[in-house]
Amino acid sequence: RGFLEKAAVKKMAKAIMADPNKADEVYKKWADKGYTLTQMSNFLKSKTAGKYDRVYNGYVIHLD
């Protein structure tokens, strides 16, 4: 289950990176699912340092 969630989160993160207008909708879905910042950090780990920082930081702001 965790692997599928991670894959889904990364897919949506890539969608945000391609079209930032989708961010609020995606952040709301993640918040509704109760994803914590720790979970998001783990889901968005990448071999490329900083690749998903913008998405993660946007989610931090959304939760605030």
Rank of each mutant, 00 (worst) to 15 (best):
P20L: 06
I16Y: 01
H62T: 03
Y27M: 02
L44M: 02
K29A: 14
G58R: 02
R54K: 14
A31C: 15
A31L: 05
D19Y: 07
K33I: 12
K6I: 13
N42G: 11
S46Y: 08
E5M: 07
K6N: 07
I61D: 13
L63P: 00
Y35N: 00
K51V: 07
K6W: 10
V9Q: 01
K22C: 15
Y52T: 02
D24I: 10
R54Y: 12
M17G: 02
K10H: 06
P20A: 08
S41E: 12
L44S: 00
A49N: 11
M12Y: 05
H62L: 04
K28N: 09
N42V: 11
L63D: 02
G58S: 03
A13R: 01
A18H: 10
M12F: 04
A49P: 15
P20C: 11
W30M: 01
D64R: 15
K10F: 04
T48H: 11
N57M: 12
V55G: 00
K47A: 10
K33D: 07
H62S: 05
I16N: 01
T48E: 13
T38G: 11
D53H: 04
Y27Q: 00
K33C: 15
Y35F: 06
K6D: 07
E25F: 09
R54P: 13
G50S: 06
V55N: 01
A23C: 07
G2E: 12
L37C: 07
T38W: 10
K45I: 09
Y59F: 05
T38M: 11
V9D: 00
K45H: 10
A15Q: 12
Y56L: 15
Y27S: 01
L4Y: 12
M17N: 05
K47S: 13
L44E: 01
G34M: 05
K33V: 09
A7I: 13
H62G: 02
Y56T: 04
A23R: 06
A31F: 08
D32I: 08
V9H: 01
Y52F: 08
A13H: 01
K47W: 06
Y27C: 03
V55T: 02
Y35R: 00
D19I: 03
K11F: 08
K33T: 10
A8S: 10
K45Q: 12
T38H: 12
